[in-house]
Design a protein around this nucleic acid. Sequence first.
DNA 1: GGGCTTATTGCAACTCGTCGCAATTACAAA
DNA 2: TTTGTAATTGCGACGAGTTGCAATAAGCCC
Lengths: 140, 140
Amino acid sequence: MTKATGIASRLSKAGYRLTPQRIMILDAIEGASGHISAEEIYQKIKALYPGLNISTVYRTMELLKETGMVTETDMGDGRVRFHSVGHEHHHHLVCSRCGAVIDLDEAVLAPLTTLLTEKFGFSADLKHLAIFGHCKDCDR
Amino acid sequence: MTKATGIASRLSKAGYRLTPQRIMILDAIEGASGHISAEEIYQKIKALYPGLNISTVYRTMELLKETGMVTETDMGDGRVRFHSVGHEHHHHLVCSRCGAVIDLDEAVLAPLTTLLTEKFGFSADLKHLAIFGHCKDCDR
DNA sequence: GGGCTTATTGCAACTCGTCGCAATTACAAA
DNA sequence: TTTGTAATTGCGACGAGTTGCAATAAGCCC
């Protein structure tokens, strides 16, 4: 109930109820460094509050995504990861052969999003993108 | 055994066995116009050959992806779609609010892939990408 | 054609994520 | 503080996709 107070109040101001489950989930996300999976959030909380259900975690993440407080990234390992928004956005180059991950600054994709807006009136949601391919070492 | 002969021989030349299941799956993909899901492939074939197992379809698609004969696209509807390579690649702008899909020419992403190669030595595999966001009508 | 080797298949069990529904509960209003 | 009600939760069942393992069979060699 400490660190997540800011996000929590934003949630309640947006018209959503502040349940203990949500508060604990928010805490878990804020407390986590970097990316965290739904299962990890679930396990963290279950230690203190065994009543929590995994589907509540998924539904809360859905909510946080919609309200833009969290982003979702599929790093290709069969497990989606979440990341609280607030710091600069960044992207990932994921090598599908060796699994290496290269971090990519948001600026690299800026020209693309601009182009999509101008040409198609489409505002791309590229807060946290994973691009698959082959890294230098694995390239044929 | 008719249309897919070309792809089939490519498969066998690559050192993979040509099983009846694989031939039927290749036929189904070639026969399909545009995108097709694993379930659709499965149902198509099961009518003629009930012995087929769905996991064989998935494993074959994995194989075809690796050998670059097929691309995979997640259109955000909870069902991945496949598409045989050979025609020009294209991409999709998917509106996460109304579900509209705008087709995008490959050329639009060419500058990005070039940049990634030059700057990071990373060859991005952007044969069939779905970019999520909001379309003109759904934009806030 | 017949045998041998190893890739491939079918099966069953599993994981991640979603959904419908009934029970609970946050929060606004009295 | 009590009540009313719609949002939220837990639960169980489901759907998509993956995996380990034993049985099968494609394709090579003779």
